[in-house]
Design a protein around this nucleic acid. Structure first.
Lengths: 220, 220
DNA sequence: GTCTATATAGGGATAGAC
DNA sequence: GTCTATCCCTATATAGAC
């Protein structure tokens, strides 16, 4: 939205660490924007990272599936970690406003229910991004540990980090904290851990049922 | 390669693929059995695999932390995958009787609640083993894809596989299936995804609260 | 049973032609 | 922008001494 402060030029720049939010995001409106090589790299990488895991995916595989060579990838990304970082930024963007609401104001089960509802929508629309995050925690942790403090500084808190912080907040009653964790887990399990067990259910139906479960858990 | 088919030399030491249930399992009785090098390798490997991920952990690290060399490890395990497999078998053993009850008889939310209660106890007692499983899905999937069909055949169904099967069982009402997934996710989130957010809570208190949440979800 | 030394492979990354 | 060719490093795994 209004945060495209530094929107870099279109195509020339390699090492585009500052343009994280303008690829083929299969957004709610379904607009598949640019089909540049850079975004295609990210799409293929996302698929592979989710399917085989980051560490078990080589740049050669990404390049082959794309019909280019490894060296071509290095024109757009300075390292393999850089690709992961770019994908991480996509996810980051997704949870931005939910994060904002979590940062301001006191935490309550009511707010939590509201946020969870919103986040669930994003999860349904961007399953792969969340799966990437879930299935490559080790790699992402290393990413945090290293450099790139420019774009991923303290103000840019992770959704996961924020959730953690809230769940550990002792000013919130223990029962509520646990119920919040449970409700998140309930959503998470249905959308990501169930695999294709609910493939016969539409996203809308699934969403409704899960929302109902969340309400029961949070008592709202 | 490491495709040693049906090696099975009936000696005591190396390649003990057939003795999965006799290491230092911190079992319910708390008996820390043998402190053999083999079991110490598994303990250290478990810690590292959980902490850094299987793919990011080298045999050199395991050896160093143990005060031996890589070659020593190969005396006890035929490959790195073999170590992961041995740990996987530990977990396998843990969920054995829960699996049996799931295999027999019809599935119901009541049975599910019962099993979940039981499994939660195991989870609390063997957190690392479950974390290993959660954080190294990619590696474990590859393990399934390859050989070792001897010990890990069709009859030895995975807990995860069994859960999947039940959740996909269309003879169970959709609402129940979803509630079952939710309840598992609720447990999972509190025990494994919350990190140290609930470090201030005793396992007993945590267990009670989670059980309460599960009851609300399943309506039992 | 544990070591030293080594074989072998593959991955990430860079240089420079086109 | 993409390619070919190559460097360098680390990892798994093996051979054989002690």
């Amino acid at each position: 939205m209004a945060k495209s402060a530094e929107q870099v030029v279109a195509e020339a720049p390699p090492d585009a660490r500052l343009a994280p939010a303008s690829e083929t995001s299969g957004g709610p409106d379904g607009t598949a924007e640019v089909d540049s090589t850079r975004s295609r790299i990210l799409d293929v990488a996302l698929d592979l990272f989710v399917e085989k895991g980051y560490d078990r995916t080589s740049l050669r595989e990404i390049a082959e599936r794309l019909g280019v060579t490894k060296a071509a990838i290095y024109y757009y990304f300075s390292s393999k970690d850089d690709i992961l970082m770019a994908l991480h930024m996509r996810l980051h963007e997704v949870g931005r406003e939910a994060l904002g609401r979590l940062a301001r104001g006191p935490v309550s089960v009511a707010l939590w229910a509201d946020l969870l509802d919103e986040v669930m929508g994003e999860m349904l629309a961007q399953r792969s991004l969340f799966l990437l995050h879930e299935r490559n925690q080790a790699a992402l942790e290393k990413l945090h540990g290293t450099q790139h403090g420019i774009v991923h500084d303290a103000e840019h808190e992770d959704l996961q980090q924020a959730f953690h912080r809230v769940l550990a907040d002792k000013s919130v009653p223990l029962r509520d904290r646990i119920r919040m964790a449970c409700s998140f887990g309930a959503v998470f399990a249905c959308l990501f851990m169930a695999g294709d067990a609910f493939a016969d259910v539409s996203d809308d139906d699934l969403g409704d049922q899960v929302r109902s479960a969340v309400r029961d858990l949070l008592g709202v």
